[in-house]
């Protein structure tokens, strides 16, 4: 099983104007236009469901304040070995 993607985005079809800037800018190309039209008559952007790194680029290139929410996988709590910890303490 592929490891869980580091990021995830959610695009609100109510706010998205379908300009495509996010699609063009996303480095791993994980955004596409939807087939269906939104109530405004545009094809909103849509996350393919995998590949997102949570880099946030789509958020910054998007002109709509609330169209995109970017999530990132919070790093799992690091288990610090006692040896590591003691070494850190001597640094």
């Amino acid at each position: 099983m592929a490891s869980e993607p580091r990021g995830r985005v959610q695009i609100d079809p109510n706010e998205c104007k379908g300009c495509g800037l996010c699609i063009d800018a996303c480095p791993p190309h994980c955004l596409v236009f939807t087939e269906e039209l939104s109530p405004y008559g545009v094809h909103p952007a849509h996350y393919l469901g995998s590949g997102c790194t949570g880099c946030g680029i789509c958020f910054y290139v998007c002109p709509e304040p609330g169209a995109i929410v970017v999530y990132r996988l919070s790093p799992p709590p690091k288990v610090i070995s006692t040896t590591e910890a003691s070494r850190a303490a001597t640094l």
């Binding site: 706010e15 946030g56 995109i68 929410v69």
Partner: peptide, 24 residues
């Protein structure tokens, strides 16, 4: 997953001063 980028609280959640399409 935690939210890292989302609509800023400095924006109104709904644009009430707008006559219509208050989400955009």
């Amino acid at each position: 997953y935690e939210v890292v980028h989302s609509k800023s609280p400095v924006f109104y959640p709904i644009y009430e001063r707008k006559a219509d399409l208050k989400h955009q």
